[in-house]
Each structure stands twice: as structure tokens, then as C-alpha cells.
Design a protein around this nucleic acid. Structure first.
Length: 275
DNA sequence: TCTCAGGGGCGAT
DNA sequence: ATCGCCCCTGAG
């Protein structure tokens, strides 16, 4: 295991909250899989012990995944102007947003509609076991997140067997569409609004799935996804009424948090939902 | 055993 | 713009 100084990073809530679905805490070690790497991370005081697989010692990958390139202090400073956010930061210090692979985040959130987080996690593991590459983490075999290419080739019934229900068709279609043209490269090159429009052209992608993909898979900081909890919170704490539209709440958050709505939302929704 | 909501979105009105 | 339905699971 490598040892790296990283005091201000809340591994538990960042890795096990609802932004990525491939992580488990086994004993005091976080073990997770993504589409191209698996990793072990363990906190030791102000340091982390870590290893990556199948490529070992890949700090370039891990630091990018953990998104250590952003100016976290500044973001915290910016969003702390809101009193609820301030409380949330106090309750969950050092919560972060991960930088996930675009296709991985996209496919993950295609599994999410009307599912609980445990449900999504279960689907992702079944898909990984059926379609993902296998590799050995020391003494333990683990499946990587399936590549879109593999899902595109799959029989729809195989995908259905992963308990995704009516989402199977959406996942299959999306994977095929990602293979057809260089859609991934193109979407990754677009600005926020254009990328959002492109994502919404996929079957199964509405406001929520699009925004989750934009924030967790494409690195946009300036918007936040609203789930049912998010909507309730906006009503309870920020004066939106029951009829408030997704777009209205989204625009307001974008303005209010001035470029960092993603981070504000992450704190806010994590904080209130877990109470 | 049953009901119900769960980090929504689609398609018919 | 509204509303029933999509498939499946775990909680109550």
C-alpha cells in the first residue's frame, strides 16, 4: 500500500453516498471498482493508505478520481454564505464530489429511476459480475464496471437478469448509441447546456439523470440534480411551493451558488436526507 | 402476505 | 400540463 498525506477528505460519505455505487467498506478499508480501475483505500490519521488495480501505484488515476485538483477551500468558502449549507458542512466536513468516468456515471444513473440507493448498488454489482472484466485484488476477485461496448453487445435478457426492470431497454439502447458514433468524445467536449441537450436525447434520460451525469460524470460544478428529497428540501427551506418546476429550482440554485451549486447540493441533500 | 415508496421518465390524454 | 404506468426490492 502507498501512503499519502490527505487530511481533509471524508472517504466514507464521499465513496458510500449516492454518487458512486461501486464502493464497499470492508473492515476499515474502502474497496471499490470503476470501469478501468479497482482500488483499496484506508484512512490512517491524516494519511491514506492506498493501492490501485490492475495498474498498481496509479496516483494519477486516484488523485483524478478523488478530484484533488479542485480548490476545495475556495468552494467551501463560496457556498458557506448560506446558513443551511454552513450547518451541513459542519455536520459532514470534507465531503467531496468524485470525478467519475462519463460512461460509468451515465449508465449508473440510467439504473437509478425509482430505485433506492441499495437497489442501484445491487444492479450495478450484478451488471459488473455479468459484463465487467474480472481481476484479482490481492486475495479477492472483483468485477470492474462494465464497458458500454460490452453492454451494447449484450442480449437484453441478460441485462434484465440484473434486476434493472424497465430500465434494461434504456441501458441497452444507450450503450449501443455510445458505440455508434464517437458520442462520448463529443459530449465530453460540449458546454453545459449543449451536453445536457445531448444527454436528454437518450431514452430514459430526463432532468435528474441528465444532471447527475453532468455533475458526477462530466465534472460540471454549476448545477445540482434534484431528486425527491432535493425537491422537498427546496420547499421546506428555500420557499419553493409544491408546484415548483425542476427548471425553476435548478436556475435558482445555479444563480444563488454562483458556479458551485453542485457542491452546495451535495452537502445540503446529504445532510438533510440523513437526518 | 400485503402495501408502498424508492435519488424518474415516457407516452397518452 | 397532468397522470397512469413501467419492473423490482426492501421496509414496515
Amino acid at each position: 500500500m502507498n501512503r499519502t498525506y490527505l487530511p481533509d477528505y471524508n472517504l466514507a460519505i464521499t465513496l458510500l453516498g449516492g454518487q458512486s455505487f461501486g464502493w464497499d467498506k470492508i473492515g476499515d478499508t474502502f474497496i471499490g471498482f470503476t470501469v478501468d480501475r479497482a482500488a483499496k483505500i484506508k484512512r490512517e490519521g491524516e494519511y491514506i493508505l492506498w493501492q490501485t488495480y490492475p495498474v498498481h501505484d496509479d496516483w494519477d488515476w486516484l488523485s483524478s478520481y478523488l478530484r484533488l485538483d479542485i480548490d476545495y477551500e475556495n468552494i467551501i468558502k463560496e457556498i458557506s454564505k448560506d446558513k443551511y449549507i454552513k450547518s451541513a458542512i459542519k455536520a459532514y466536513p470534507n465531503l467531496r464530489i468524485l470525478n467519475q468516468n462519463f460512461e460509468e456515471a451515465f449508465i449508473s444513473f440510467l439504473c437509478s429511476p425509482t430505485k433506492s440507493i441499495v437497489g442501484i448498488r445491487q444492479c450495478i454489482r450484478l451488471l459488473a459480475d455479468k459484463f465487467g472484466d474480472k481481476l484479482l485484488l490481492d486475495d479477492r476477485e472483483i468485477s470492474l464496471f462494465p464497458k458500454a461496448e460490452r453492454l451494447a453487445q449484450a442480449d437484453i435478457n441478460e441485462i434484465l437478469a440484473c434486476k434493472v426492470g424497465f430500465r434494461a431497454k434504456n441501458i441497452h439502447e444507450a450503450a449501443q448509441k455510445l458505440m455508434k458514433e464517437p458520442v462520448t468524445e463529443r459530449i465530453q467536449s460540449l458546454k453545459l447546456n449543449e451536453a445536457r441537450t445531448e444527454l436528454m436525447k437518450f431514452r430514459g434520460v430526463g432532468d435528474k439523470v441528465a444532471d447527475c451525469t453532468l455533475v458526477y460524470g462530466l465534472g460540471f460544478n454549476e448545477i445540482t440534480p434534484f431528486d425527491v428529497w432535493g425537491k422537498r428540501i427546496m420547499q421546506k427551506y428555500y420557499g419553493f411551493n409544491e408546484k415548483a418546476k425542476y427548471e425553476d429550482m435548478s436556475l435558482w440554485m445555479k444563480e444563488y451558488f454562483n458556479g458551485y451549486a453542485a457542491w452546495a447540493g451535495q452537502f445540503l441533500f446529504e445532510y438533510i436526507r440523513s437526518r
